[in-house]
Write a protein that binds this DNA or RNA. Structure first.
Lengths: 202, 202
DNA sequence: ACAGCGACTGAACAAGTGTTCAATACTCGG
DNA sequence: CCGAGTATTGAACACTTGTTCAGTCGCTGT
């Protein structure tokens, strides 16, 4: 961990913005607040980033790079996100909700990679077949992101720092349990839902 | 569906606020914008609700009532939320993210009800046992809410109106598939994660 | 008819917003 | 040491924000 003082002002501003945007939302964060956190004048913020919007895009780019550079290699999407630093995760959650173009691109990318990953697993025999692989991939990814987006709620009930790694791991383990052994022993709910689904679009 | 004109001004303001808060966030919504949507003066919204904060609380209460009154009976949490009207869902997602006290209460309530529901299912034999029932319940609920919160992203990729019921059903079916039959055929990921989990807190 | 009362408004206020700009401090190559 | 260029600032701008308030409209009971 780098201490706050040995960073260039530009980086300090970006980090402060990342944190504030993540906790208070973009609309709820003022340039002045970011400037104060970075111990810098508001004018310097716009000098470096052009505008508040420019600052937001800089954060987008930074987050995308952080995540993508994390594990382009073999590891699946799950690990990459869980390993991202806490402020980055919180910011990502906000960005996904606000439909930032960059966040949308990232979401799409993760879904595509995941779908390919699941398809490979299916071929190799360690993933079950699906009636709707795309929907499964989208749902799976949104499940991965859920504890992240709802971090505050989940953390509170799991009794840890909202976005602490240990808490996230506990939740993820419970999730993997369901994904591996299944949750329900029979298909009563699946059958019911399939009926609704087919009934509504004949 | 009621037409906009035959509602009292108070209700019109509340509905407008619900929609705007849901799409633009609370901080991103101005009292003037709400007033304009309801074809009313800004002064009237504070006359009726005291302040912007009061308006937000009124929305909270309305949403809670809408959801709770929906299916207090037998049906499980899933249906209640999916059946809520679209603006209500979007608002709920925002409220959960912003850690509104009312939203937190609702989340806790749903988790508790779900845990009891799962425990009952376990006793009756249609739900599998878990190593960590609370974590499972929390994770399960956050999974239910995920497509709701990430509605924009999910909808875009599943190719329907972001928060359209049909789209939600398609995702939910894919989810139930995983929960019923499982996703993975062996416990390679579960074992790996259990190892991490136990390794990190000895 | 008229008093009372709640719904409703227009104009205004103070505070906070993003952004601009001239001016100063700083750093480095010549 | 000097001068070009960058980093940084304080003060100000125009605008939006939430909120206040005096006052008007329209109804309802007497």
């Amino acid at each position: 961990m780098r201490s706050a003082s040995d960073l260039t002002a530009r980086a300090r501003i970006r980090d402060a913005a990342l944190a504030r945007f993540g906790t208070d939302g973009i609309a709820g964060t003022s340039v002045r607040a970011v400037a104060a956190d970075a111990r810098v004048s508001p004018a310097l913020v716009v000098h470096h980033f052009g505008s508040k919007e420019g600052l937001r895009q800089a954060c987008d780019d930074y987050v995308l790079d952080s995540i993508r550079s994390g594990g382009e290699a073999a590891t699946e999407a799950l690990g990459e996100i869980l390993q991202a630093a806490t402020p980055v995760r919180r910011y990502l959650a906000r960005a996904l909700l606000d439909d930032t173009p960059a966040a949308s691109a990232l979401f799409t990318e993760i879904v595509e990679r995941t779908e390919a990953w699941l398809a490979a697993g299916e071929k190799e025999g360690w993933v079950r077949a699906s009636a709707d692989p795309t929907a499964r991939s989208v749902t799976y990814v949104s499940w991965l992101l859920a504890p992240l987006v709802l971090g505050g709620q989940v953390g509170r009930l799991l009794g840890g720092d909202p976005a602490e790694t240990a808490t996230a791991v506990r939740g993820a383990r419970a999730g993997l349990e369901m994904l591996t052994r299944g949750l329900f022993t029979d298909d009563r709910w699946l059958a019911a839902f399939t009926a609704i689904d087919e009934g509504k679009r004949p």
